[in-house]
Amino acid sequence: MRVYLPCTLPGLARALAAGELGPGPMAGFAVTPALVEWYVSGDTEELEYVALMEAARGSLRMLAADKADGFDAPARRVVVAAEVPDTAVLVSPDLNDRGRVRVLESVPMANLAAVHIDDLPAQEDVSAALSALSSADDGDDDAQFIVDGADAHELLWYATQEIPDLLT
């Protein structure tokens, strides 16, 4: 199963050093039956894009948590696309959690299919989204507009062999 795993640049560096992304369980997003049911008219590519964007929002939350802990990571969302055995993926039974999965074990670097990362110009909007995230969660429409502004930036696609270069 193709799974989209939220990450950060420091997290990606740790995965490269360890030879695997993990440990499990990890939150991820995939084309699940609930996502297919919700997005009735979409083809597989469109559904995978929805899962990718949900993972990008998860990456934003990881960056916010790092920031709250005083850890300064670059304000760039990172999503790792990986091929994970179906037996290692737990699909949420809650239809409101469309696309959400749990990857139960570490994912070897050999199972990564691609990495998606914000380009450098996105950092300003991602930083603003990080600052507005808490207020958006509390229902502030203006803050939600700022958070949604990060989604206006497409994540760039990189092959797995490019990961070392991305981290330098």
Score class of each variant (00 low, 15 high):
Ser106Lys: 00
Lys67Tyr: 11
Glu20Asn: 13
Met53Asn: 13
Val40Phe: 15
Ala122Trp: 00
Val31Arg: 03
Ile146Arg: 06
Thr168His: 15
Arg61Ser: 06
Val31Met: 09
Val79Pro: 01
Ala129Leu: 00
Gln144His: 09
Ser131Met: 10
Val115Pro: 00
Pro93Tyr: 06
Glu54Gly: 04
Thr168Ala: 15
Val101Asn: 04
Ala136Phe: 04
Glu46Asp: 13
Tyr39Lys: 12
Arg57Cys: 12
Met1Thr: 11
Ala13Asn: 04
Leu90Tyr: 14
Asp138Pro: 05
Asp86Lys: 02
Pro108Arg: 02
Gly22Thr: 07
Ala27Cys: 08
Val80Asp: 00
Ala68Asp: 15
Pro85Val: 12
Glu20Pro: 05
Asp94Phe: 06
Phe71Ala: 15
Pro93Asp: 09
Glu46Tyr: 12
Asp125Val: 07
Glu154Phe: 12
Ala34Cys: 13
Gly139Met: 08
Ser131Phe: 05
Ala30Gln: 10
His153Glu: 08
Ser134Pro: 06
Val107Gly: 01
Asn96His: 12
Gly42Ile: 03
Glu83Val: 08
Thr44Gly: 15
Val79Leu: 05
Leu104Ser: 14
Ala75Ser: 07
Leu12Tyr: 09
Leu90Thr: 12
Asp66Gly: 11
Gly58Cys: 09
Ile146Asp: 08
Tyr4Ala: 01
Pro164Glu: 14
Ala64Ile: 04
Arg61Thr: 02
Arg57Ile: 11
Glu37Gly: 12
Trp157His: 15
Arg61Pro: 00
Met62Lys: 13
Val3Pro: 00
Gly42Val: 05
Asp94Pro: 02
Gly99Leu: 02
Met62Ile: 12
Ala152Cys: 14
Ala73Tyr: 04
Asp148Ser: 11
Leu90Gly: 10
Asp119Trp: 10
Val89Leu: 09
Arg57His: 15
Glu105Lys: 08
Leu95Ser: 15
Gly24Cys: 10
Pro74Gly: 03
Ser41Thr: 14
Ala17Asn: 12
Asp69Phe: 07
Gly22Phe: 04
Asp119Asn: 13
Asp151Ser: 12
Ala73Ile: 03
Pro6Thr: 01
Tyr39Ile: 07
Glu105Val: 09
Leu167Asn: 06
Ser127Glu: 15
Leu133Gln: 02
Glu124Asp: 14
Ala64Arg: 06
Ala114Gly: 06
Ala136Ile: 04
Tyr49Arg: 15
Gln144Gly: 06
Ala27Ile: 06
Phe71Gly: 13
Gly139Asn: 07
Met26Asp: 04
Leu16Ala: 05
Glu154Tyr: 13
Gly139Val: 06
Val84Ser: 07
Ala34Ile: 10
Arg77Trp: 02
Arg102Leu: 10
Ala82Asn: 01
Asp148Gln: 11
Ala152His: 13
Ala82Arg: 00
Ala75Met: 03
Leu167Ser: 06
Phe29Gly: 00
Asp140His: 09
Ala159Gly: 15
Leu16Ser: 02
Ala128Pro: 00
Gly11Thr: 09
Pro93Ile: 05
Val101Ala: 08
Asp66His: 12
Leu12Cys: 10
Pro108Phe: 02
Ile146Trp: 07
Asp66Val: 08
Ala113Ser: 14
Gly22Asn: 08
Thr32Cys: 06
Leu167Gly: 04
Asp165Thr: 11
Asp86Glu: 11
Thr168Pro: 10
Gly149Phe: 01
Pro74Ser: 07
Asp72Lys: 08
Asp138Gly: 13
Arg14Gln: 11
Leu21Asn: 03
